[in-house]
Amino acid sequence: MAIEVRIPTILRTHTGGNKTVEGSGATLSALVDDLDSKHPGLKNRLVTEEGTLHRFVNVYVNDEDVRFTGALDTAVKDGDSVTILPAVAGG
């Protein structure tokens, strides 16, 4: 078992065009590191230099927006499903 991660169109350049990838880790942060080791460049698109999630992306663990569950510290486990979506916003 692993954690299934759904990748939005804009980030599929990092995953060879794949819509979903698998990863592991005890927290979202560890999962992102694991994903980045297999799909280099992904982390940069999700996490700022300051180590926080980009405001341009929304990340959900089992349909729950991680902004409300501890952001990158959100606990994840095998069997969880993670969805990454670009925010749709502007001025």
């Binding site: 959900y60 927006d65 902004r67 969805t83 979506l85 925010a87 749709v88 916003a89 502007g90 001025g91």
Partner: peptide, 23 residues
Amino acid sequence: PMLNAARSPTFYEFDSGDLLRLY
């Protein structure tokens, strides 16, 4: 049509739950 969660004359954003359901 989506709800502008910002309800603002100068900004718009899809509510994060609406965004997930939409996609």
